[in-house]
Amino acid sequence: MSRYIYSIIRCLPDPQTGEFVNYGAIAGDPVTGDWGIRQLSRTDRIRRFAPVAVLDVASGFMLRLETMIDAQRTPLESEILDEEWLRGLHHDHRNIVQLSPPAPILANSAQEALELIFGHMIIDPVPQPRQVSMNKDAITRELRDVYRRVDIDPSLVRKRPQVFVGAHVNYTVDFAIANGHAVQLTQAWSFRRSSLDEVSMQVKAWGYALDRLRGGEEARVIDTATRQISTIDAAVDLQVVVMPPETASQERCFDEAKEIFAGLGAQVHSLDDANAVGARAEMLVKGLESAG
């Protein structure tokens, strides 16, 4: 086992009262650079007393940390994620998002450290580990790994970029392969969820934005981390990776979504077939380089 350090990430709906709820955790080995981050599988309990704007702040913070962890795995990355870095996050974040003081934990990997933390210090209403594999995070983690395994410059993989269509429509997609021009958009959906109304509304909102794109309206992709803008055309490759349903009600929600996927000409894959998304992206990037 190795010495890892961790902090519990807390969300404070009203920092003045000091009341908080544990939102997630970050753990890493400063020596090897093995870092991981995880948030609650469900935020239903938090929503009872935290406004949507507060949850958006916490979610955005988790996304920024995830982006930093992804970035430090690439060559020539200047920022070192070590104990001082984590201590700095603890010191600097004293508002809606706060981190507990870094503490040591023995584990074989960052993921094992997070399992221990969630098993003993954070109450997650969804049983572990079975249900974790059923939410959307499991799909996006696999897609990140898929894109790392193919022959694509990591800087082309845009995580959680915003797609703007026309003057007023925008939607945050999970991944875009873009560098001045977007060649692929990829979205993950889990239909093994209890909040099916929420899934249905999200699919419809996503479908509405992309239907406007398919219709030929002017559109662009903006990387939320770098603010780089890429053009996008109506024929962009559209990929969807799903966690398929198990119950009858989940199946009905999935059937409705499949009609939207088909209408957009999206390629739909199960999680087991996610490698096909990376292979398609690699082919598109090589074709773009050849054309250039």
Rank of each mutant, 00 (worst) to 15 (best):
L288W: 11
A138R: 07
D92R: 03
V173P: 15
T140A: 02
C253T: 14
S155K: 14
R64P: 05
L81T: 11
D14R: 05
W206V: 04
H269K: 13
A281Q: 01
G263T: 04
A53F: 06
G216H: 09
L99M: 04
G88C: 00
Y208N: 06
P15Q: 02
F49G: 13
L40D: 02
D29Y: 13
E142I: 13
Q228I: 09
D145G: 08
G24T: 10
I37C: 09
L210G: 01
T32E: 11
V97G: 03
C11L: 09
G216E: 11
R3C: 05
V285E: 10
A279Y: 06
V157A: 07
R47D: 06
S249Y: 13
K258N: 14
F261V: 01
E79P: 01
S7A: 07
V203D: 05
Q131D: 12
I123W: 04
V240L: 11
L264E: 02
Q98M: 14
S194P: 08
Q202V: 03
P13T: 01
V52N: 06
A113C: 14
Q187S: 10
A291C: 08
A188S: 12
D151R: 11
P13A: 01
I26D: 03
P127S: 08
S249R: 11
I9P: 05
K204H: 13
K204Y: 14
V169Y: 14
K286V: 00
F175E: 01
Q187M: 13
S270A: 04
S194L: 02
A71C: 06
D223V: 08
I123K: 05
A103P: 06
P161T: 07
A58L: 05
S109W: 15
I152R: 01
L196N: 06
Q98W: 05
I139K: 07
D124T: 06
D145T: 13
V277A: 01
L40V: 12
I9R: 03
F191K: 02
A178S: 15
T140F: 03
E217C: 05
E217D: 11
L86A: 01
Q250M: 15
S59Y: 14
S190E: 09
D145M: 12
A53M: 10
E19Q: 15
I152Q: 00
A53T: 10
Y23E: 03
L288K: 10
D14W: 05
